[in-house]
Design a protein around this nucleic acid. Structure first.
Length: 581
DNA sequence: GCCGTTTTCGGCCCGACTGTTTTCAGTCG
């Protein structure tokens, strides 16, 4: 049982307790526990109760319940709650505008258990007989049910970024004097975002009207003097907050979040007799205002270095900021090479030379061409003979083009049993090998782990590509034990890839941070299939920043010669040594 | 349910908006 599965049960207990109307702090305790587990890279299943209690927000009771869940698949407390409430009412809780109180009321007074029940009750007029329920609320609920599928879910970070950029540009045209910044999960660089938060300062309240008048606004959900919400074309909700210029920093801090980071920051303020809100930092006694115009001022007044938004997840950043030991995070400009790309030899759209020139244009000094191996028949994967012939052409093209070093590589398939798709003597003749899984994602954990470990043991592998195989919003990561994979990669000097494809971003921030902490070298690679494909590198850099990664942790920040020398195949034979400096 | 050199008991973040009210509860971020 993996951490995410355990976390889901704890979170569901939290939701059910909320519907029941239980102690809100108990509810938060379950949610904190769930968050902790979801963020924890080591397997909770392998921990003792004492070890579990070392994790933040997990005490004696939760540790006991987690052990029970690991050992039996569930906990008696969770089953007890499910007897009290049907699990389908949790679907109701996820509807916008419906909270725990209303859901409980719907269930106890009208026996509404499912979305279908709710829709029926809304249509036949029973809903309006409830206290606090009028025609507007009825319409809201009906609409929420109907648009559930259409607008379900979250959006990929790059999609959200583009939408935000267009909206900000339009607003800037209307409000030249105003300061407009995206905040929220977008500013923190989260891999997916639920909605779009914009902060405007130094503008009149007419800014709200400009926002509501944006050409892509499909529906106004709420409007006030300082806050408005709309649904944009395509179903994305956008929220705008208007604050006075002197509160800009406090508001940026507040609306950037994360919630956990903000709670910790407020707690820190309280310990110092201060109150932090979106308008500033104030003394509780007397109300004197200490900071608010800039984020730096807020953090400084709390005894902290300014914390980059990507780190604000309450994962140790406050302690690091206090000790003035925040890492220097990697930037896109630090990348000097790209190590994963495809050409027309397999499923790419452009030839070797076009890709090379585009990479150079993108500011890169080296590029590995890594087309697919034979198992990927639908992508016209290369067998040994074609792979070597392709390598010859890559080297020939490299000799013709100035200003960029081409590496003859391959993306070699890892077969179901962990063997590689091409013979060792073929891989040995290439400059760079990234090994990836493209099929058999549903394998059980043990088999998947063995498969990856076996691939890592092959001495001609330089890197594992998109290590968890996830597709954001589509496919869950495979069940393999990533801690074991990370440790094996560290042992054997194999690099792990942060694949920059926008629906992969694989490794995730959590796993990338684990890899870094265990001394694994990382590669940030585009996996581009066309000359336009190098633009995605910025998203992999974003993941790396969220993983506390600096330029020194990433192999392809090194100049070409140094990079090549650092590859496992060029280091001392015998493999299992620690990475050389 | 968690947590702790101000506490092992008594705290636990806080403000805006909506819809239904006639002073506020519920939801959201």
């Amino acid at each position: 049982m993996d951490n995410l599965a355990i976390a889901r049960i704890l979170a569901e207990i939290g939701d059910l307790l909320e519907i029941r109307g239980d102690n809100p702090f108990k509810i938060r305790a379950y949610r904190n526990g769930a968050d902790t587990l979801a963020d924890e890279p080591s397997a909770a299943a392998a921990m003792t109760e004492a070890q579990l209690q070392q994790l933040p927000g997990i005490g004696r009771d939760l540790a006991k319940k987690i052990r029970e869940i690991v050992d039996t698949g569930d906990t008696a407390f969770h089953r007890e709650l499910l007897e009290e409430f049907p699990p389908t009412i949790l679907d109701l809780l996820r509807l916008p505008g419906l909270g725990p109180r209303t859901v409980r009321q719907l269930y106890t007074e009208l026996d509404i258990r499912t979305l279908a029940d709710l829709e029926t009750a809304a249509r036949d007029g029973r809903l309006e007989r409830l206290r606090g329920m009028g025609p507007k609320k009825r319409e809201l609920i009906l609409k929420a049910v109907q648009t559930r599928q259409q607008y379900a879910g979250r959006h990929l970070l790059p999609d959200m970024h583009d939408i935000a950029a267009a909206l900000v540009a339009a607003l800037r045209e209307d409000l030249p004097a105003a300061d407009i910044v995206p905040v929220g999960s977008l500013r923190r660089g989260c891999e997916t975002c639920g909605d779009l938060d914009l902060l405007v300062s130094g503008a009149e309240t007419t800014a709200i009207d400009r926002f509501l008048g944006y050409r892509l606004v499909e529906e106004v959900l709420a409007r006030g003097d300082t806050k408005a919400s709309v649904r944009l074309w395509g179903g994305i909700q956008a929220d705008l907050r208007l604050v006075p210029a002197e509160s800009r920093g406090a508001a940026m801090q507040y609306f950037t979040g994360s919630k956990a980071h903000n709670i910790a920051l407020r707690d820190r303020a309280l310990q110092r007799g201060l109150k932090l809100n979106e308008y500033g930092l104030f003394r509780i006694e007397g109300g004197e205002r200490l900071a608010g115009a800039t984020e730096e001022g807020i953090y400084e007044a709390l005894g902290l270095a300014w914390i980059p938004p990507e780190l604000r997840e309450h994962r140790g950043e406050i302690e690091a900021a206090e000790a003035r030991q925040l890492p220097r995070l990697i930037d896109l400009a630090d990348l000097r090479g790209d190590l994963h790309s495809h050409t027309t030899a397999t499923d790419g759209r452009d030839d070797i030379e076009t890709m090379a020139r585009a990479a150079k244009e993108a500011g890169l000094r080296y590029l590995a061409i890594t087309d697919h191996s034979q198992s990927l028949t639908m992508s016209n994967g290369l067998d040994e003979r074609r792979a070597l012939e392709h390598a010859r052409r890559i080297r020939e093209a490299g000799s013709r083009i100035d200003g960029i070093t081409l590496l003859a590589g391959i993306e070699c398939d890892i077969r179901a049993d962990g063997t590689l798709d091409l013979a060792d003597d073929c891989l040995a003749q290439l400059d760079y090998v990234v090994a990836s899984i493209h099929s058999g994602f549903a394998q059980e954990a043990a088999q998947m782990t063995d498969r990856l470990l076996r691939a890592i043991e092959n001495r001609w592998i330089d890197t594992i590509g998109h290590p968890t195989g996830r597709k954001l919003l589509k496919r869950e990561p495979h069940k393999g034990d990533m801690t074991a994979v990370v440790d094996a990669a560290a042992r054997h000097g194999v690099a792990l890839e942060i694949n920059c494809q926008i629906d992969r971003l694989d490794l995730s921030d959590v796993h990338a941070r684990l890899a870094r902490e265990r001394g694994v070298r990382l590669i940030i690679a585009s996996d581009s299939h066309s000359q336009a494909g190098f633009g995605v590198l910025r998203w992999g850099v974003q993941v790396a920043r969220r993983a506390w990664i600096g330029p020194g942790d990433v192999l392809n920040t090194r100049p070409p010669d140094e990079f090549l020398a650092s590859l496992r195949r060029h280091r001392t034979r015998g493999g299992a040594s620690a990475p050389s400096a």
